[in-house]
Every structure is written in C-alpha cells, then in structure tokens.
Design a protein around this nucleic acid. Structure first.
Lengths: 254, 254
DNA sequence: AAAAGATTTGCATGTATTTGCCTGTTTAAA
DNA sequence: TTTAAACAGGCAAATACATGCAAATCTTTT
C-alpha cells in the first residue's frame, strides 16, 4: 500500500525504541505508535524483530528492557484517570518560553509525559525521575537541581538544593499536595521535604498546586505555605464542584 | 543514453550527499533524486558506493550517518554477559565507608544493580538514572550532582556540575571508556562531556576505568586523561589476556 | 581527428521490503 | 463471565531494489 509514511526509516524507529527502552525500561506499543506516527502493527513488527534479535523482551502491550529492574512501579492505577485529567489542565498553564519548577510525584510524572513535543520551555526540577522524563522532550531545557536523594519523597534534599533554589527565579512552580486545607494551606509530613519545597515556593512567581480531590481538606504536621500564596489549584474536579468552594476565595481553580 | 543532465559530476554528488548526511544524519533516496535531478537508480548507486567505502550506512530508502548508528546499538546478548562480569569485578573495589563517584552508561547501571544491599558507602553521581538505581540500596547515601541534562550522554553537564565537582573529594571514581588506548589514554567525542569527566577525575583519589574489550585501542577526538592517571582497568577479559598487556605498564588490571 | 574503450546514466524488467488494513483468535482485566 | 485491547497471519499497495542493457559522455589510443 504505502511504503513509508513520514521520513523515518525502520532503523531509526528501532534506534528510537531502544533508546526509550534503555531510558524507561519499558515501552507501550500504543505510545510508540502515537509518537512515531505509524500503525500499531508496524510497532508490533518492530518489537518482534528487536525481540528476535535479543535486544528486548516482548510482553503483551509493549516490551521491556532485557535487564529490567526499575524503581518505577506504577501499579496503583486507582487514580490514573484523575491524574490524566489533572495533567491536561496543568499543561494549559505552560506558555512557550516559560521557566518552570516542578517537584516529584506520580501526578507530576503524568503531566510531564503529556507535554506535547512542540512545547519549548525551561524546566527546573528536584526530581531525577521527572528530569529524565522531561529530557525526552526535544525542545525542553532541563536542569536538575542536585542534592542528596531522599527515596521516600523521590526528590533531592538537603542544603545544596535549597541554596541552589535561592539562586533561581522561575515563572511558575508546580507542587503536589500531601495536605491541603482552605484555611491552613499546604502542609507536609517531613521536615526535610518542607525545607526544599519552601525554597521552591520562594523562587517562583506563581504557584500551582496539583492534587487529587482526596487530599483536599487535610492538615499535616508541617506547614508549608498559606492559602493566599497559592495562585492556581488543579484537581480532577469540575471547577464549580462545591467541594472546591472554600478555596475560591484565595485561589484560582482550574 | 545520456551521461550527465546538468553540470554535476559524480564526485560532486557524493560530496553533496556526504554534506547532507553530516548535516541531517540521514538522507532519503527520493529526496536526493529530486534535489540533484538524477534518477533514483543513480542515487542508489551513489549510496552503494559510499556505503562500500564505509562512509555511510545504507538502509532501505536512503542512508544514515555512520556516527548516528554507532553508539546506539550495543546490547547484544554477549555484551550483556560481559557487562555482568565487569560489574562483578568492579564491585570488589568498593570498600565499606568509601566515597565513590560514578558516571552513566549501561555497564555502570549493571554494576550499580549488582551492589549488595549490605554495602555502606557514599555515592556521588552525575547521572540521574544511576542515582535512582543507587537510591534503591538502603545503606547507601546518594548525592546527585545537578545541572543541565544532556540526553545523548545521559549525564548532567555545564558549569554547575563542574564547580560542584571541584568542591568534593572522593576515594574512587568509576568512568566508562568511549575511547581507550595504552598510549593516548582515555578519549571522548563530546567536548561538553569531557569537561565534566575531567572535573570528575580531578576530584578523585583513584580512577577506575570500566569498559568492554571492544573499546580498547581506540582514540577519539577529545582527550580526557593520560594512561598513567588511570589506577584500575576493568574489562570482561582475563587479566592475563594478551590484549591487555600494553596497559599493564601504567595500570592495574582486574 | 577519428576510433576504440571505459564510464556513467537512465530505463525496463522482475523481485523484495515495508506497511496498513483485514480477518479471526488470544489475552488480560473489569 | 464479559468485554476491550492486543495479537497473529494473510493480503494488497506502494516503494525500493537488483540486474541487464543501451545510449550518452568521457578517456585513451592510434
């Protein structure tokens, strides 16, 4: 029927797939099909060939790295759809040329994955995982703020990131919420994490808080910031949902 | 029938094709045929000649730059086993309480995965992926040296990591080798990467070079360090293998 | 300068690859 | 169990390819 749709050779596709697999240790046929703009059949054949060559391990729906082991276990799918919806809203805040600061978390990861390839912006982040995912986007400049890795929060903590954050000034900061209350504002559990996030807030002109509705109206031990310091609140709910009413006073709901 | 349509000789076409390939990393037969106003047969013959001469890599529908495909595909079954063997040797260098600096690369990743859980040490790294993998080990302290992510090398580059590296002092540095020669020492392709790796070497008391034997006896554009600056050389070969003899003068072979 | 030889190129023929679509089947999750 | 997604295999179309050949051009020789 047709030889090659766009200008990508089979070899290039294979190379791309291998790169993705080396990076993420897994690929989904559907995603590849989308990204490379070829049919799923073609991707299936590609994966079959690579698997035949012993380069990857084929599984139902995609393929895995031959030496897989990876710190990303995305098995709590319960809120997957919500997170996608949140991500969709959050991406609208990203304007071309912006400088953006993000933290870690599955919602953030979901958002980062949904950023279109055409977006051009500069991202700072304290999360290695987010940084790697961002770096997949061709037009993004990604700057990882180093430090000691804290596995429970998946971000870099300590003195170094805090002082580095003090030196930057970004347009927009995306934070997840562990605790969020209309009166008490953002709160956290861990002191070390709070220190870093406070520094993140201080470095940013605007603050967007991203969270699933479950986390609303909860107050945790460590206070992070007041409600009026938050500029945008993004949840999976409709902005007019009455659960969001208490927040409307200070915050723009998306 | 007709020899040359317009005023372009075969050599000129070849030169043009090489220019295009160096510029875009790939060419399409159809495009070239259009652009140069010759038949696709002629282009095919041109590409075949250039491929025979080893200048390019021919693929169905066009050709790719040699350097494009080179660094990507090194995941044969054999190489995988070699990397495990290398990793086993490298781990023996890790003593409890040590401070260690590592770069990126699949061999490094393999090594990091094989580190036993009981090992207690401090790791610095410029690779987000390695950092995440290291952070899986309960007793390791992992410090990620931040900076702008360079996707081709998978490490953080730029001024920041270099100045940060200047502030630390570690017992042992693990480097992979892109080019290694008994007389010329370590070499690299990319300037930006060289800068970071030089800083890594400077911060370290001992230097261990990790590489599969394929990479031995190769010299690349950018020099990284002299052979006598290398303390350990780790390959998948038996230390008594004669291919390693030239290196024994300056370096301890594991 | 003319003839002979070599090279280069386009064309025609038949073959091979690549790819999307179609069918029905298997698989995995709700 | 039911249902949607993923799969395998076959088919058809569009290219891409290899080969042989003849014409045009270039090179060498006479």
């Amino acid at each position: 029927m047709e030889g090659r749709v766009n200008g990508m050779f089979k070899n290039e596709r294979h190379a791309f797939i291998m790169k993705q697999i080396n990076l993420h240790n897994k690929v989904l046929s559907s995603e590849l099909s989308n990204r490379l703009e070829v049919s799923e059949d073609t991707i299936r054949r590609d994966l079959a060939e690579l698997a035949d060559a012993g380069e990857i391990i084929k599984v139902h729906g995609g393929a895995l790295s031959k030496s897989y082991h990876y710190p990303i276990q995305n098995n709590s799918v319960y809120a997957q759809d919500s997170k996608k919806e949140i991500a969709r809203k959050a991406i609208k805040l990203i304007q071309p040329g912006m400088t953006i600061l993000t933290e870690a978390g599955t919602t953030m990861l979901e958002m980062v994955r949904m950023i279109p390839d055409e977006v051009e912006a500069t991202f700072f982040t304290v999360s290695p995982l987010i940084a790697l995912e961002l770096a997949d986007h061709p037009l993004l400049t990604v700057i990882l703020i180093g430090g000691q890795i804290d596995m429970s929060s998946q971000i870099n903590i300590g003195e170094k990131p805090i002082s580095e954050l003090a030196d930057i000034n970004v347009d927009l900061c995306f934070l997840g919420a562990h605790g969020l209350d209309s009166k008490a504002g953002l709160s956290e559990v861990e002191w070390k994490v709070v220190q870093v996030k406070k520094a993140m807030i201080k470095s940013s002109t605007k603050l967007a808080v991203i969270t699933i509705s479950e986390k609303l109206n909860s107050i945790l031990k460590m206070k992070l910031c007041n409600p009026h310091e938050i500029d945008y609140l993004i949840t999976e709910l409709n902005p007019n949902d009455k659960r969001l009413t208490p927040y409307k006073k200070n915050i723009q709901i998306l």
